[in-house]
Nucleic acid binder design. Structure first.
Length: 258
DNA sequence: ATGGTAGCGCTGCTA
């Protein structure tokens, strides 16, 4: 099963590129983030014509997450579970069972800066995600939590670690929250196949950062251990970020499970 | 360079 996660930064602006990418990469399951669409504007018919069932959880102008699947899509669920302690009602998490695997697409709040209220929201949201795992999932099950975590797990994932000290995405509190997810029973699958620094999934649109190689690895595929063992290869699909017109500022991360 | 670009949508917010 081939799984991908991609923050498309507006599916409305990116649909043609996403369609071409689906035809080229042929993923079985895709987690999308930042669709920036209301549910009634989500192009489910476009995806079904390409062979994908889909489930979207959007709110319009900001956020919005979805799961696409061509290996079945069952028990879709928008948002956290009713019993979870949720800091704010934003469209940042959606789940579905695809080919026997529970798949969760997440868009973790950006945080802006450590002194900002949005940073506290980010930490609260990550705590809610951990609570959701405790309540709704089991580390022994086949589970994927994929998406834009807005956290660089360690300094290999940052183009200039010294420059980022004190910035959001790298603070000990954020990394500790991510570690909490891993300690619950998830594996950063990409790091099973790649040890080196400089393999990024996001580049700031500004100042030509993509072409200068200034990026972060913040888009992650997390899998429960038994499922992670089955990962054959993984990569960042930088081809989807190259060229015109109008790429997302994120590249897809793709994992092949045997 | 406390800048820069992209998206939404039409003013300034979000990233």
């Amino acid at each position: 099963m081939r799984v991908a996660t991609w923050n498309v930064n507006s599916l409305g602006a990116r649909l043609e590129r996403v369609e071409a990418w689906l035809a080229e990469v042929e993923p079985d399951v895709v987690c999308l983030q930042e669709t920036k669409l209301a549910d009634d504007a989500f192009p489910s018919l476009t995806f079904s014509a390409l062979g994908y069932e889909s489930f979207h959880h959007g709110q319009g102008r900001w956020n919005g997450v979805a799961v696409l699947s061509r290996v079945g899509l069952e028990a879709p669920a928008a948002g956290f579970s009713p019993d979870d302690v949720v800091p704010r009602d934003e469209a940042r998490i959606v789940s579905a069972t695809c080919g026997g695997v529970r798949v969760v697409s997440v868009y973790v709040p950006n945080g802006r800066s450590p002194d900002h209220e949005q940073y506290q929201f980010k930490l609260e949201w990550l705590a809610a995600l951990r609570g959701h795992l405790d309540a709704a999932c089991r580390p022994t099950a086949d589970l994927l939590v994929c998406g834009d975590f807005n956290i660089a797990p360690d300094d290999r994932d940052v183009y200039d670690p010294a420059k980022f000290v004190g910035s959001t995405h790298v603070t000990p509190a954020e990394r500790s929250a991510l570690d909490g997810l891993l300690e619950w029973g998830l594996v950063d699958v990409f790091r099973r196949h790649h040890d080196e620094a400089g393999l990024y999934s996001w580049w700031d649109y500004r100042a030509g950062d993509f072409h200068q190689g200034r990026g972060l690895r913040i888009d992650l595929v997390l899998a429960t251990p038994a499922l992670a063992e089955k990962a054959v290869w993984s990569l960042v699909d930088r081809n989807a970020r190259k060229g015109k017109p109008t790429p997302s500022d994120h590249a897809p991360v793709i994992v092949e499970f045997g």
